[in-house]
Design a protein around this nucleic acid. Structure first.
Lengths: 239, 239
DNA sequence: ACACAATAATCTGTCGACAATTAAAATACA
DNA sequence: TGTATTTTAATTGTCGACAGATTATTGTGT
């Protein structure tokens, strides 16, 4: 046999228990990228057919997503993609700002050379996305950039919370990207540059200030998007 | 029929989908309270027999616990209760301290009268537990006290992270309660009193300082427990 | 024509069983 | 006797099917 294990058959393309992870990751991305709109019902049978597997592993993936708050299960009724609760956005902004500050500070304190390589990698990709005016790529690379900083800070609790917050932020930005303005992203490129330099210099105070400023920028941007939004009732929960 | 719905039979004491929640809560508590030791294997068949239900709802509860990090699933092999990783305790201390400070500050800013009632309730219960020298009750009520403060702060992201951290702390304290000293708890009673007063006065600065001090106390306490621990290899992961 | 009740359809929650995989036990061999 | 190899056992991951519950549909009465 030239190939020991690639696909055990045409039906089951995943080996033993890898399917759940695949379903989880796929749905996660589709929810974050608003491929599935908030409030949309999730049909287990449909997913089972789509991924060509039983409902059982599908449900396990859904339970994971529910634990993360990405989907909401109405008991005995449909499970839906969680709505973005615009009524409590201040909680989100507050936590996001704090995590920006804390993770950047910790990165300055704890980073090793390998971390800088990763951070610079995403910093460059973000600048590149700005150059080519690819809005979705900007949103995605910006997330990875700040997540790389968080990982350099070496605190799994912060990394976990920050990941959730950045993902939530991606959903909101996607929802309002229509009014995206390409002045702001260039500003972000500069701010990213300054943050990285402060991390390299291990200047905690400067990191904290840059991170706070950066967070304020993003919060203001999101707020301006929302207030500039013209769609009627776009912010109302569907349920 | 005098009773419309209580138990549909002697076998299934829970109605439609309430079983998973029960299993989750029960296992959660048993893990937190160290009824099940870290590293212990979790047998699905055994749990299914114990709760007299199929493996399917058991597995869903386990997936939830795994998402929370309380259990670890080795693929195709046993799932075990997660070990406390003593190598990265500083991450835990750092995050715990930050959450103490942030939640107490927010409580000062956002609390309403009903919150104070809840906070005072648990403050009194803690003091009472100290009086009766019930160590486990101290640990439990202390958690509820600080969680009540966090809830008064009205930020679900912080409440969620803080909950996880406090639970992790409970596991560690349980592991080392043998050397519990009843001088410290009295100090905590005073500190709790001062924190509540600062919250009532809406004094953010004072809240921050008291919370930071309180966190430092607890961190020092845990650290002293660990260094005073005489058991050989008690801090080593089993795997 | 509208409100209400009965019925049907659809989807979730649960179950028992089978397949795949790994750990343990038994056997063979040096 | 100790080590490698096969066999057995136990346990996880997956499946198809059934039962309970909710929503949509149809039917009935005023």
């Amino acid at each position: 046999m030239t190939e020991t294990k690639e696909k055990k058959s045409t039906k089951g393309p995943f080996k033993r228990g890898a399917g759940v992870g695949h379903v989880y990751q796929t749905l996660h991305r589709e929810i974050i990228e608003l491929k599935i709109a908030p409030g949309s019902p999730i049909d287990e049978l449909q997913l089972a057919a789509r991924f060509s597997m039983s409902r059982t592993p599908i449900r396990e993936a859904l339970v994971r997503l529910a634990a993360e708050g990405l989907i909401t299960t109405l008991p005995n009724r449909a499970t839906i993609v969680s709505n973005i609760d615009f009524l409590n956005l201040s909680q989100f902004f507050d936590a996001l700002t704090l995590m920006y500050r804390v993770t950047t500070r910790l990165a300055a304190a704890n980073h090793v050379p390998a971390d800088l390589k990763e951070i610079n990698h995403w910093k460059d990709l973000y600048a590149q996305a700005v150059e080519s005016r690819d809005v979705f790529e900007m949103i995605a690379t910006n997330r990875e950039f700040h997540l790389a900083i968080a990982k350099a800070g070496r605190n799994r609790y912060y990394v976990e919370l920050f990941t959730r917050l950045l993902d939530e932020g991606r959903r909101i930005l996607r929802l309002y990207y229509q009014s995206y303005n390409d002045e702001i992203p260039h500003l972000y490129v500069d701010e990213h540059e300054k943050m990285v330099q402060a991390i390299i210099d291990r200047d905690l105070v400067l990191c904290d200030r840059f991170a706070a400023d950066h967070a304020d920028q993003i919060v203001r941007q999101i707020q301006s998007y929302i207030s500039a939004d013209t769609r009627i009732n776009s912010a109302l929960p569907l349920g």
